[in-house]
């Protein structure tokens, strides 16, 4: 689950009295120019220009907290930071618990709400199957190079029986949210890994497949004939 590094995006932390990292304080911009930052967030055209202008006009520079940038970037990074901080607090306790969140209850409700704030997804009304319908009704397939912050990455798997025969094709198993393109152009995503699971970040491909006795999330795969498994707003 290790992503490639990025010089532009860094995480910063707060420390507790025992000098343990307690909170993900902020995602920081370090070396990037506003235009480069916009590119790595996947912003284009007017949106990118507006972003860069806003960045420059506000006199923002290295160390800026992405959650405070406003727009989709600020909204999404605000949630990412909160949830990673909550996860860290549970990790420090060492009991194996994950943060409770009935709205961002699993991968599907998390990626739907991050993509569209009015999606209204929660643990009661959402599922991986509902997420496929949400995608078909609201989003469009796109290429990896066109990923924009908040876009959805879908993971599907052919389910098999004990004889190895395929029983269902391309069943949705997992969803993540694109948050930035690393300096070496590897898509980085945020995810809740399963119902009541971990809030975590990593490379998009790092969430594919199975490791050890873990649940198998399959591969990055589009619905039906959609070629990529990456989806953004129409």
């Amino acid at each position: 689950m290790r992503p490639s590094g990025s010089d532009t995006f860094r995480q910063d932390y707060a420390y507790d009295k025992l000098n343990r990292i307690s909170t993900v304080n902020e995602y920081q911009v370090t070396n990037g120019t506003p235009a480069e930052l916009a590119r790595q967030l996947g912003l284009k055209g007017n949106e990118a220009e507006k972003f860069a202008k806003n960045f420059t006009e506000k006199g923002l520079s290295d160390g800026v907290e992405l959650a405070k940038l406003g727009g989709d970037t600020g909204r999404i990074y605000g949630i990412v930071q909160d949830k990673l901080s909550d996860q860290r607090k549970e990790d420090i306790k060492g009991k194996g618990d994950n943060p409770y969140d009935g709205i961002l209850a699993d991968c599907s409700s998390t990626s739907a709400n991050l993509n569209l704030p009015i999606a209204g997804a929660n643990g009661k009304n959402w599922s991986v199957l509902v997420m496929d319908v949400f995608i078909e009704n609201n989003l469009t397939s796109k290429s990896e190079g066109d990923l924009r912050i908040g876009d959805v990455v879908r993971y599907g798997l052919d389910e098999t029986n004990s004889k190895g025969e395929i029983t269902s094709r391309n069943v949705p198993k997992h969803f993540t949210t694109f948050i930035f393109m690393s300096d070496d152009n590897v898509p980085q995503v945020f995810s809740r890994s399963g119902v009541g699971g971990r809030f975590e970040t990593g490379s998009a491909s790092g969430f594919a497949g199975k490791f050890g006795n873990d649940v198998d999330y399959g591969n990055i795969r589009g619905i039906g004939r959609d070629s990529t498994g990456y989806y953004g707003r129409r």
């Binding site: 990790d91 060492g94 194996g96 994950n98 209850a105 699993d106 991968c107 599907s108 409700s109 643990g123 959402w126 599922s127 991986v128 199957l129 509902v130 198993k173 997992h174 969803f175 890994s193 399963g194 119902v195 009541g196 699971g197 971990r198 490791f211 050890g212 006795n213 873990d214 649940v215 999330y217």
Partner: peptide, 13 residues
């Protein structure tokens, strides 16, 4: 060392 496993997502089928 600690490790949290991946969990299945909500299916509600």
């Amino acid at each position: 060392y600690y490790h949290s496993s991946r969990l299945p997502s909500i299916q509600r089928t």
